[in-house]
Amino acid sequence: MTKNAYDFNNLNPSATVIRRLDPLVIEKPRAPIHIHTYGGETRFFKGLAEGRLWGTYCDNLDCDPSGREAYIHLPPRIYCPDCLEKMEWQDITDVARETARIHTHITVLNPGAFNRVAIPCQLVSIEIEGVATVLMSQLMGAEPEIGMPVEPVFNTSNPTFTILDLAWKPR
């Protein structure tokens, strides 16, 4: 991994770049690195690198609304949003392979800075049987359509350990 060439902890004041003299406009460079934890969601992001899709569900029988047909949360949640009991993990890779469909989709042509997905990027929202939520993700190698059956593709060879390790292709 390459680092920036100059040390941001020791900026040289004489290196100030002036953009404009009146009004006086100067550059203020920085490139801080954040150390970010996935905490309790670690299983999800490690799972992508292992080719598995993990959701969570609430097994508290007193949770209201309970007995729902679609009960799995994807993105996973550590605590149930209704009763705040800790949720259980469930591997939903196979059901995603069999039932996932595109709920909605768009094409991103002009991404923001620091974007790492290939442009144009097909952004899709994915509905899966038994899942109460609609995951945002990316589609590979096809023109998306609402209702299109899709299956997950995992980046297991050189994982980024981000949501970009998951994509979908037509089924």
């Binding site: 970010h36 996935y38 969601e41 992001f45 993105p75 709920h103 909605t104 989709h105 768009i106 991103v108 002009n110 991404p111 923001g112 800075a113 620091f114 974007n115 790492r116 997905v117 990027c121 952004l123 899709v124 929202s125 995951l135 945002m136 993700s137 990316q138 609402i146 981000t162 949501i163 970009l164």
Partner: peptide
Amino acid sequence: KDFETELGHIYTGYYALMAQR
């Protein structure tokens, strides 16, 4: 930031998913 921002770094895109639907 973990589940959406990485996907294009563009809020318009997240809105457009709703728009398209």
